[in-house]
């Protein structure tokens, strides 16, 4: 079987619990938040490395983001990826899923030889799993979203076990394909300190390297706009702490529940 050219799309995201809304400007305050590789993307990297071990081939990482994303790509290289590419340009900023998937698709085409693109199921900073299907459409190839397990079939197609509502299905798709990987389907391996030392540098491309019309990128190329941003507020809760013996607590609990439901 011929070796697999795998590209993993990874996004550097702020840690969700450290992002807040500035109440005056009603904009996001990301400055104080530390970043990380989007957790499901770690599962996608692990999946790619496992496939390379099984079938041979290469694993490239691709990210679109600010220059500070480069060190996070080093993490993926130290896990064992062969190459890393960062699409970085002010023109990419403020992109919704349409220009994001477009730029990533162009990046994939520029990397060249590939059979399989792996993504995470969703990015934790707001978008929700629409980029992988978008990339597949720009590249006009098959897709398998919410995949839990991947293998090659003897006829060269990809076998994917994927989640559906209330169950799962096993599908065979032709390559090339774009796949999104479910969070938590594997244990991402640790960095290898030797690889960390010998890893190649991250290749950085800007908008003109991709040779695309700037009007189809970033904020300018985004059909959607954010109207307003605010801090999520849950309804005020009573926070009544129950005291007493177990039996007393149980009795109070039963009372509180009975006030709302009959059973």
């Amino acid at each position: 079987m011929k070796p697999l050219g795998i590209i993993v799309c990874v996004k550097v995201v702020p840690k969700p619990e450290e992002v807040s809304v500035n109440p005056e400007t009603r904009t996001l305050d990301r400055a104080k938040a530390r970043s990380e590789l989007n957790p499901p993307d770690m599962n996608a990297i692990e999946m790619a490395l496992a496939l390379r071990e099984r079938y041979g081939g290469s694993v490239s990482l691709l990210s679109m983001g600010p220059p500070f994303a480069a060190p996070y790509l080093q993490v993926g290289l130290a896990m064992g990826a062969d190459h890393a590419y960062l699409l970085s340009d002010r023109l990419f900023g403020g992109a919704d899923t349409l220009p994001t998937s477009f730029a990533l698709a162009r990046g994939i085409q520029k990397i060249g030889e590939w059979d399989l693109v792996l993504c995470g199921e969703e990015s934790s900073d707001g978008a929700t799993g629409q980029v992988p299907a978008g990339i597949a459409e720009w590249l006009d190839c098959s897709q398998a979203t919410y995949a839990m397990d991947l293998a090659l079939l003897p006829d060269g197609r990809l076998r994917a076990e994927r989640e559906i509502r209330g169950g799962h299905e096993v599908i065979a798709v032709s390559l090339p394909a774009v796949v999104s990987v479910k969070l938590g389907v594997n244990e991402p391996r640790f960095m290898d300190m030797e690889l960390r030392r010998t890893a190649p540098a991250v290749t950085v491309w800007n908008a003109s390297d991709l040779g695309v019309d700037p009007a189809s990128l970033g904020f300018e190329g985004s059909p959607t706009v954010v109207g307003a941003v605010w801090q999520a507020k849950s309804p005020e809760r009573r926070r009544e702490f129950l005291d007493g013996t177990l039996q007393e607590k149980a009795r109070l609990l039963a009372e509180r529940i009975r006030a709302l439901v009959s059973f």
């Binding site: 349409l98 299907a133 994927r162």
Partner: peptide
């Protein structure tokens, strides 16, 4: 926003070159 609903929506939005607001928890007219 079921697995297949999102699979379709993400693909269709790019085919139609339009915007998609994913995973809404509320809808209203401006």
């Amino acid at each position: 926003a079921t697995p297949n609903g999102r699979d379709l929506a993400g693909r269709l939005a790019v085919r139609l070159r339009t915007g998609l607001t994913a995973d809404c928890t509320g809808l209203a007219w401006e």
